[in-house]
Nucleic acid binder design. Sequence first.
DNA 1: AGGATCGTTGACAGCGCTACCAGCAACGAC
DNA 2: GTCGTTGCTGGTAGCGCTGTCAACGATCCT
Lengths: 365, 365
Amino acid sequence: MGRKRTKSGKIRLAEVAELAGVSPITASRFFRNPEALSVAKRTRVESAAQELGYVPNLAARALASQRTEVIGVLIPSLTNNVFSDVLRGIYDAFESSPYSIQLSNTRYSILQEEKLLRIFLAQKPAGLIVTGIDQTTESRAMLEAADCPIVQIMEIGPNPVDMMIGFSHYDAARAAIAHLFAQGHRKIGFVGARMDPRVQRRLDGYVAAMKDAGLFDQRLIVTTATPTSVTLGGALFADLLARESGIDSVFCANDDLALGVLFECRRREIAVPEQIAIVGFNDLEFMASSVPTLTSVRTNRYEMGSAAAAMLIEAIEGKRPEEPVLDLGFTVIERQSSQMQRAAASPRAPEWAPAVQNDSVTNDP
Amino acid sequence: MGRKRTKSGKIRLAEVAELAGVSPITASRFFRNPEALSVAKRTRVESAAQELGYVPNLAARALASQRTEVIGVLIPSLTNNVFSDVLRGIYDAFESSPYSIQLSNTRYSILQEEKLLRIFLAQKPAGLIVTGIDQTTESRAMLEAADCPIVQIMEIGPNPVDMMIGFSHYDAARAAIAHLFAQGHRKIGFVGARMDPRVQRRLDGYVAAMKDAGLFDQRLIVTTATPTSVTLGGALFADLLARESGIDSVFCANDDLALGVLFECRRREIAVPEQIAIVGFNDLEFMASSVPTLTSVRTNRYEMGSAAAAMLIEAIEGKRPEEPVLDLGFTVIERQSSQMQRAAASPRAPEWAPAVQNDSVTNDP
DNA sequence: AGGATCGTTGACAGCGCTACCAGCAACGAC
DNA sequence: GTCGTTGCTGGTAGCGCTGTCAACGATCCT
């Protein structure tokens, strides 16, 4: 009984080393830098670890090495579809890496973000993903002093803390308005909710486009700090209609609002796009299958997450990208809801692929 | 310069203790069991920690105490709206606790779940939240051997590993079908996607209800393993219509599918609910504001998350609930899409509250 | 052949914190 | 006055792993 076990019966590195006939430090190296071992020892340690079902103790590793394999992720919302896509991209990209993700919700509060940042940084994360470019001065200072790679996601702007990946919400909004102009629309309403910095910049883009065209009118803008929802889209649009007549189109700061506007049009028997054109933002899945299909600005959310993760991993491993700011762009996806003249009056075929898997199920309890 | 600092300049417990004029162990106790200290020392340590901006090193704590304050959460999807609500409940409930959440995505694979479970358990989590009741035998064994509280969420069933919180998907589906029966519907189609265990149990409920009524017909069921989407709802419904005529209603395994069916009806100029009634599942927000509004089975997702978290915290602190299985139930929310006779032909007022916050924004760059 | 270099391995000393147990004062019971 | 008892505090000894450095043989160069 030479080997001593911890009470919990857990396998430690020492046990693995003993079984493999090497020193603990050699076994340790196997897990961090296998190439440094001779092939013989490598296989010995590997099979020993396998046999004993060894799982490293991360706390001990973190303590001894003074660093963790934790990636901190700070996002403002867990509910918003937009962030779930980004998160999926992040989680997928870290899937096969040794890094684990520590996710925290700032609830759109930069003060909360600052608090969380303080806690995160104290744990010496391997990397950090933060949302947006509007941190507090204090947060900004902490981020700049942090000794780990950092990626700001969701939008791009000047002075990245480190790396940055996203797109210009301002430009995207301008592109959406340009599309409506091109379709002959002039009196374009704006409907926005939550009004976080990115929605605000979409509004800025809208305002700039309208001003440039000499069409700006404050009364065309309806916004609220309330979190977004489909229902809210209908309500805000109703407000807009009550306030101003002759509106020929609506640019919605996101797709939920756009869907709400569409439903409200149906409720009021307003023909879309004949009487009112609708443009959303984000191009969520349902935009392509509504009736009429809804024009939207496609954003590359999954890619934003996965690319941010990839950049972070590269940077942690010392291979910093030559260009720290990555613009993922956007695309205005033109659909029926904004096509002024060409729109047919009757329902049209949806975008879905014709061949659908269709394995019926027998179920006899 | 009696005090020695670690290279990174981090404040350690020893520094706090020194400033407070107590031993490190007393300072340590302050953070874990403040009541054990005299009031004088307690305030001394508190202000010292405050002054130095001390943040404990979690790795060292975990190593020394042989336990962590990490809650493992295993969910099958990050994209699904349903889980984002549950997650929000979980995150909110742990917000003010010392516990941090380690989230992993099983992607609906119980093998992946088993793998993740093994990793999680090796880190000695303070608690675990797992989705559903369909674990592998191996997973089940690991869970039962784990020395931390465990909550199974999303559904309830026999033989909880430890605690369990959810509702009966089978009963919920039966209730939905009973509602359709009550509205006079007889030839009820079933549309389902992904077909994870919970959707499968909804199908089981549907099948049982139909058989009991002598109305079961295999051809009324259309399912696919493809992940759910609005577009897919329309496609599956189109399939159902192509296969079988005379269908008077459709029960959709979730709301996205229901919305897709609604759009498909509109595309084909099928009147809802006059020609076809639609019932969804989960009662997502948009169901109340579509045209017509869509009947659905409301499930308490946020509560499921927050209650699971609360149960877990209680259990970790030794106060196990007397009843380990909590049924959160469901409610069939009857809306226009399933009301056969009373349905008006023209659009109706939506459910949203009349008073909407409406703070217009001036924005002049 | 001698020395330098490389690749591989191991010994040692902690990382920052806490479990455990011992110590000590204050208090009451006998 | 002695003996517990309670309440608070401190010392010691690790938790399991890795950074650093030194040692070793093998290989290479001149």
